[in-house]
Simulated assay, not measured.
Amino acid sequence: MFFASDNSGPAHPSVLEAIAKANEGYTFGYGNDDLTRDVADQIRTLFEAPEAAVYLVPTGTAANALALSILCQPFDTVFCSDRAHIHEDECNAPEFYTGGAKLTLVPGGDRMTPERLRTAIEGEENRGVHGPQRGAVSITNVAEIGNVYTLAEMKALCDIAKGFDMPVHLDGARFAQACAALDCSPAEMSWKLGIDVAVFGGTKNGLMGVEAVVIFDPKLAYQFELRRKRGGHLFSKHRYLAAQMQAYLADDLWLDLARRANSSAARLYAGLQDNGVTVLTQAPANVIFFELALGQHKALMAAGANYYLMGDENGSDDTIVTGRLVCDWSIGHAGVDAFLAELNRLT
């Protein structure tokens, strides 16, 4: 009953096999190997973007921060949700890697609306040299509270950004889960909407640790290469990143694993509602936020459930506290049913 994070789940066996195979013999480092070039070509094909530049980095924070660094100047600002991962969970890495570009938070939860985004953008770049300049817009799908933007919602945000001549970054740490939830292709959820740089995440979906940054404007490619090296994220033994991504792409494993995670979450979501639990996530993929009394949370955890609480853990047992449940590809229906059985006993 481990629902703490999809970062905590195991790597898929085929990923480990691919790494072992890549470990044979010698090859050039720093991405100058045939495996890396082949993986980049496969990602270009997957995204229907033959001119795109593709780079692998080991973490989502590196992927997001480096992506934003090629879209913004130090005196710019990035517009994002006030619950965005780049704001809440990356220790000011975007500000660091962009050389000082700030984040302007768009209020309203984990999904921005076009109206609120427009208001936020219009509120900046109106003080000349005294204020930040309009830099980029960052969208996260799956969003931070587990909700999923529809393609129409994403397109509306991209249209607002383009109206101000601003590029758009897509934080896709759970890119696969969003595609599975929307039943769409990577192209349909990226450049066809107006996304300029997308992160194709793998770490939260069965890989040991690798994310692909897909840059649809090749003119930005060399700048990314320089910033990746300067930022310490160019692996010398790069083939081990590429091997993971090779396994991820083979036979659409990326989509299969995402569907497994989403299926488990859908079963969990239905079970929570059947037990009368207040669920805060409105359109989930594989992440669910819900509310229970603290005493009930404690009882579930004592029975073996692992998940995070997002509130006061020192209050009375009657205090209502938010919990977060995340399904990874491996949890399966058995893990979900065990949790729901304990929940049913309590409620």
Score class of each variant (00 low, 15 high):
8 S>I: 07
14 S>F: 01
17 E>M: 07
18 A>Q: 08
24 E>G: 01
27 T>L: 10
37 R>Y: 12
41 D>P: 02
45 T>D: 15
47 F>R: 00
52 A>N: 08
54 V>Q: 02
56 L>D: 00
75 F>N: 00
79 F>C: 03
79 F>H: 00
83 R>F: 11
84 A>V: 02
85 H>S: 15
85 H>M: 05
98 T>Y: 01
115 E>C: 09
116 R>M: 07
117 L>K: 03
117 L>V: 10
137 V>A: 05
138 S>D: 07
140 T>F: 05
143 A>V: 12
149 Y>F: 12
156 A>E: 14
158 C>F: 04
159 D>I: 05
166 M>R: 07
174 R>F: 06
177 Q>H: 10
190 S>N: 13
191 W>E: 06
196 D>M: 11
198 A>S: 13
202 G>Q: 00
205 N>P: 12
216 F>S: 04
219 K>Y: 15
221 A>L: 08
230 R>V: 10
233 H>V: 10
243 A>F: 03
245 M>I: 12
249 L>V: 05
258 A>E: 04
259 R>S: 08
268 L>M: 15
281 T>W: 03
282 Q>N: 02
284 P>F: 02
296 Q>E: 14
310 M>T: 11
322 T>G: 11
324 R>E: 11
331 I>H: 03
333 H>G: 13
334 A>M: 14
335 G>L: 08
337 D>Y: 12
338 A>R: 13
339 F>I: 11
